[in-house]
């Protein structure tokens, strides 16, 4: 176990180093003068342009710049936003809780809905309900979040005024539409996954034994099948967390919600590069860590993984 853990950590570390190199290099891939890209459409004298270049250390060699950059990153200094001069880390820490809230809320929706629908579909395998549900799930996966969000806003906020479209993060009602938008596709994906995991288990022989013992189908489903199908399902749920996190990039923009995804998108639109570097780095780090934790959890519940 420790051996596996060590190897997994080492891999993650090497990936994180790669991530840092890529985000660092980002600014230098930009065509044209990075300083001009940095300041935008403003009145700036050529002297000030040089000053900014000096301040940002853009006249040093690349490896030197990378070392400077990493020194700062490790000490928690991700630079300052070009637009408002705020420390990038501070902005990120401020936005992160909202994204976490939204992700958790969506996770609850997608997990409960996904497991419920998937289990029901499996229990009624090959019935008309199962077929309708299967089609519904493919449709659900295919709806672009920004289109679903638009329809939800149109029906629930604009037309019927049932729910706020853009409530403050403190207002739980405002969480509903964004969370459904974010979680819906994942719920459908999970439902398919749960259905097929259960069907896999159902095809195994012990079901027939249980049936021979005279247990009801529902009792078999809940007491035997779900017990064994839980490993793939737990993994699926933790993978979902990561996908939802990525999805929040678009969903936060649709609903004008506070959050790190929207911070990243606005930073990209403004070409506020320190902020772009910071948000992209943090999202990637969270992504890598979540994947690592998922893998480790998987190894904990399923000993075969450790040995491979």
């Amino acid at each position: 176990m420790w051996n596996y853990l060590g190897r997994r950590m080492l891999t993650s570390l090497s990936i994180l180093i790669g991530v840092s190199v890529l985000t660092f290099l980002m600014l230098h891939f930009v065509p044209g003068d990075p300083v001009r890209a940095l300041i935008g459409r403003q009145s700036v004298t050529p002297e000030r342009l040089e000053e900014i270049r000096e301040e940002m250390g853009l006249n040093k060699s690349l490896p030197e710049q990378y070392i400077d950059y990493m020194k700062k990153v490790v000490s928690g200094d991700l630079g300052r936003s070009l637009k408002n001069n705020r420390p990038v880390l501070e902005s990120i820490m401020e936005q992160f809780p909202s994204t976490l809230k939204l992700t958790f809320f969506s996770l609850i929706i997608s997990t409960t809905l996904g497991i419920f629908l998937g289990a029901t579909a499996a229990a009624t395998y090959n019935s008309w309900f199962d077929r309708v549900l299967s089609f519904f799930c493919i449709a659900g996966i295919s709806v672009p979040p920004f289109f679903l969000g638009l329809l939800l806003i149109l029906f629930f906020a604009v037309r019927n005024k049932l729910l706020p479209a853009v409530a403050s993060t403190n207002d739980w009602r405002g969480m509903i539409l964004p969370a459904v938008t974010l979680g819906f596709g994942e719920a459908c994906w999970l439902a398919r996954m749960v259905r097929s995991s259960i069907l896999d288990e159902m095809n195994k022989n012990y079901q027939n034994l249980a049936r021979a013992k005279g247990l009801s189908e529902w009792s078999i489903l809940w007491n035997h099948v779900m017990l064994n199908a839980r490993i793939p399902i737990i993994t699926a749920v933790s993978i979902q967390f990561v996908y939802l996190m990525a999805g929040s990039v678009v969903v936060e923009s649709i609903f004008a919600r506070q959050g790190i995804g929207r911070l990243a998108v606005t930073a990209i639109q403004n070409r506020d590069f320190p902020l772009v570097q910071g948000t992209v780095t943090i999202i990637a780090v969270v992504y890598v860590l979540s994947n690592t934790i998922t893998d480790i959890l998987y190894a904990v519940v399923d000993p075969r993984v450790r040995l491979s």
Binding site: I153, A157, V158, K161, P164, A165, V166, F255, A256
Partner: peptide, 14 residues
């Protein structure tokens, strides 16, 4: 902060 006109209007209407 509501960056889109449509959303500001929706917020006003609700």
């Amino acid at each position: 902060v509501m960056p889109e006109a449509a959303i500001r209007l929706t917020a006003f209407q609700t």
